[in-house]
Amino acid sequence: MKLTKLLTGATLALGLATTAMADPTKVGFVYVGPVGDGGWTYEHDKGRKAVEAAFGDKVETTFVENVPEGADAERVITQMALQGADLIFTTSFGYMDPTINVAKKFPKVKFEHATGYKQADNVSVYSARFYEGRAVQGHIAGHMTKTNKIGYIASFPIPEVIRGINSAYIHAKKVNPDVEFSIIWAYTWFDPAKEADAAKALIEQGADVILQHTDSTAPQAAAQAAGNVITFGQASDMGEYAPFPRVSSIIDEWGPYYVARTQAVMDGTWESVSTWDGIGAGMVGIGEISDAVPADVKAEALALVDALADGSYHAFTGPLNKQDGTPWLAEGEVAQDYSDDGLAGMSFYVEGITAEIPN
């Protein structure tokens, strides 16, 4: 009897010790650029650090940076899964098919893919309504340009980027009917040399405002060297260039989402969802508007931020036509997220943009 009691007590003690020493939840992150890019990847890595801060030794995070979109991504994601990751965040559009492919092989692992649209039982998708921030940038740019020429450094011709160009143009045009957009496609998310060259080319063409959908601070530096060109931070604040040339920024706030989804895995409540949040939900932040912006323009921009946040205004509100002049949105009509001509699959410019979307 005594032996039985001793064994029972020992077994219980061992069970308690095992519970106390439970393995941490392993969370992996796959990055398209370096963590020091000052933009997109920098902000995703801040989100990773937020997970560590929230859960301490209950989590173990890992990351791989500079992962090309394609076969290399599939290899890296597979390796993370083989190393025991419970949750993997793949943080670039081009990781969509590699994520789906790996998820099929590891049904017990949870995957979260940024900016894509393909889901599975163990794959969620998430993105931010960056186009809301572009509306604010366009408003400021339209007021501040003196040459009426705005340059835009675009990354890849995907709906996310096209939405941003359209939103910026619509809101610049609203306050300045004479504004023109010049667009250079860099075909990269992060390449400081290419981005700097694109910025310089746009400035040489007369642009005195540069917008970017690429991740380095090189366009900021090029504008600073030019001396009379304004810019906006992309993905992160890029505040080292404030108050001029950087007059505001779009800031990607991934931390709260990453913490919530990690908590769901830990709780056993994780399920596949599609998340697309904007300024109102805090996933898109607007960096401080510097005093280089006239007070009245700043006040208008802040009012626009508030209207976008509370839903009283939508960045794509008719009347709006497509580039070829065919009607898109009627007076007062707002664009739907998912429809034949909706925002999720946007593949056309709005009327007034003279550039062509490359294949």
Rank of each mutant, 00 (worst) to 15 (best):
I286K: 03
Q79W: 00
L82G: 10
W40N: 03
G9L: 14
T99H: 03
S339N: 13
V265G: 01
A186C: 14
R48M: 10
Y349H: 00
S124I: 10
P219W: 06
V59K: 07
E60N: 05
A315N: 11
A260T: 13
K298R: 12
E204V: 11
E52T: 01
V51Y: 06
G278Q: 02
A235R: 04
S167R: 10
E180G: 01
A186V: 05
A201D: 12
F111L: 13
A54P: 03
A114G: 03
A226I: 09
A226E: 00
D324N: 08
G287W: 01
G15N: 12
Q212V: 11
G325D: 14
V259N: 09
S92L: 15
P243E: 00
V161S: 04
L82V: 14
A81G: 12
N122Q: 03
S236T: 07
Y117A: 14
T275R: 05
K104N: 00
G255S: 06
Y241E: 06
L211M: 14
A264Q: 12
G9R: 14
E288R: 13
I251A: 04
P243S: 04
A223G: 00
V293G: 11
A172Q: 09
Q220D: 09
G138M: 07
G255K: 07
V305W: 08
T275Q: 07
E195M: 07
V76H: 00
G28H: 00
E356L: 02
N66E: 07
E204H: 09
E74L: 10
E356K: 12
R129D: 06
G94I: 08
Y126E: 11
I251S: 05
Y152M: 04
A141W: 02
I184V: 14
W40C: 08
N148I: 03
D340I: 13
G332R: 01
E65I: 06
V259D: 06
Y31H: 11
I230K: 09
Y131M: 08
G142V: 10
S312D: 10
I162T: 02
G38H: 03
G239C: 13
V334H: 12
A264G: 12
F29N: 01
H171F: 05
S216Q: 02
A199E: 11
I357C: 00
T91M: 11
V125H: 12
M346Q: 04
W189R: 04
G9A: 14
G345T: 15
T262F: 07
G138H: 06
G345Q: 08
A54G: 12
L12D: 14
T147H: 06
A292T: 13
G233Y: 03
W40D: 09
T188E: 05
T317F: 07
Y126G: 02
Q220V: 06
D178F: 15
Y152S: 04
H213W: 13
P68D: 08
D45R: 00
E356R: 14
V125L: 02
V64Y: 06
A295Y: 04
T18E: 03
Y313V: 08
V64P: 14
G33N: 08
V265M: 07
T354H: 06
